[in-house]
């Protein structure tokens, strides 16, 4: 071997650390995905081998991470011009784009294969479709082409409880799709609250988020509309026996808080040129929306794992 060596790797091409790859998988998003998938799996009226259940949940986590990596690979140009995302591994030069792509593809295959082996074909197919939906339909198509990106794209994040339910039971009854609908309707007000204070960055990146294309006032109006649809919809699991009294009380109280937050944003000037003083309301709504979804799913989880499920209008 010649020792006429001599260049050193540029920081851009330098070996990434394990932490960079973990960040590539969007761990915070993954935590909510895993939690909702677990709730779907537990709520299904079928006992699943605990080992297989754990591997099925792991598969959903890996699938979520794969979708996140593919998203970061494709959106590196957008992420590079937004303060909120500029430190992500790809735009920061910590992980080369080609490695992010390979990582996402390999993880996709591994997650779907594990789900197929541990659960069934339906759950594996749903997992594969949700990864495809997020990486291709949302990231590559909708995000850069329509202000409704988050409305339609929200379906990708709504699949996990259905996948969990399918993994446990091999089917996806109406109750599973109620959980899907809950996340689907929750996503727009949750994400639009965030977009109210990041709209300038989205505008600079050329992403047609609602505040960029329709203005902050229309965004605040739609936040309220979707919240007013989402909170009553969240009561439907009670009508179908999926949720009992604990869930009902939780949904009513949390729904009132979520609605109050949306009303406070609606009557504010958050997102307007002179609305800096009201931006705190949008941040509060964003935080409340996360708590809202978490406590609703936690209530379902508690009712299906603890002896506290008392059906509304009937015996337990």
């Amino acid at each position: 071997m010649s020792d006429a060596s001599v260049s050193s790797l540029s920081p851009v091409a330098g070996p990434a650390t394990a932490t960079d790859y973990v960040r590539l998988m969007k761990p915070r998003v993954m935590s909510l995905v895993v939690f909702t998938a677990l709730v779907g799996l537990v709520a299904a009226p079928t006992d699943m081998n605990p080992v297989m259940a754990a591997i099925a949940v792991l598969s959903v986590a890996l699938g979520s991470g794969a979708a996140g990596a593919l998203n970061m690979w494709y959106d590196a140009d957008i992420d590079a011009v937004m303060a909120r995302t500029v430190t992500r591994p790809v735009p920061a030069g910590l992980v080369p784009p080609s490695e992010a792509l390979a990582f996402g593809l390999i993880m996709s295959v591994v997650s779907v294969m594990l789900m197929l082996l541990a659960a069934n074909l339906l759950a594996a197919a749903l997992l594969a479709f949700s990864i495809f939906f997020y990486a291709v339909i949302y990231t590559m198509w909708l995000k850069r082409s329509t202000a409704e990106n988050i409305v339609i794209g929200g379906a990708a994040g709504a699949f996990p409880p259905v996948i969990g339910w399918a993994a446990a039971s091999g089917s996806t009854p109406l109750e599973a799709w109620l959980l899907f609908g809950l996340i689907f309707l929750w996503t727009p007000p949750h994400f639009w609250a965030l977009s109210l204070w990041t709209s300038k960055e989205y505008e600079r990146a050329g992403v047609p988020m609602l505040p960029v294309t329709h203005g902050a006032r229309e965004t605040r109006r739609r936040i309220l509309i979707y919240t007013l649809i989402c909170t009553p919809f969240a009561l439907l699991p009670v009508a179908f026996g999926l949720g009992g009294w604990v869930y009902l009380v939780t949904a009513v109280i949390a729904g009132a808080a979520f609605t109050a937050g949306a009303v406070r944003v609606f009557v504010s000037r958050a997102g307007d040129a002179d609305g800096a003083a009201d931006m705190g309301r949008a941040r509060q709504l964003f935080a409340v929306s996360i708590i809202y979804l978490f406590v609703l799913f936690a209530a379902i989880l508690a009712e299906h794992t603890l002896p506290i499920h008392v059906a509304v209008g009937g015996a337990s």
Partner: peptide
């Protein structure tokens, strides 16, 4: 063979070693 070689800095070599260990662990877990 162009005669060009890459010389890793100690930090890069350590990072590469750590990454290799994580990949081995991931494969073993799989």
């Amino acid at each position: 063979d162009t005669g060009e070689r890459v010389t890793l800095t100690p930090e890069q070599a350590a990072a590469r070693k750590r990454r290799g260990q994580w990949m081995a662990l991931a494969l073993f877990t799989f």
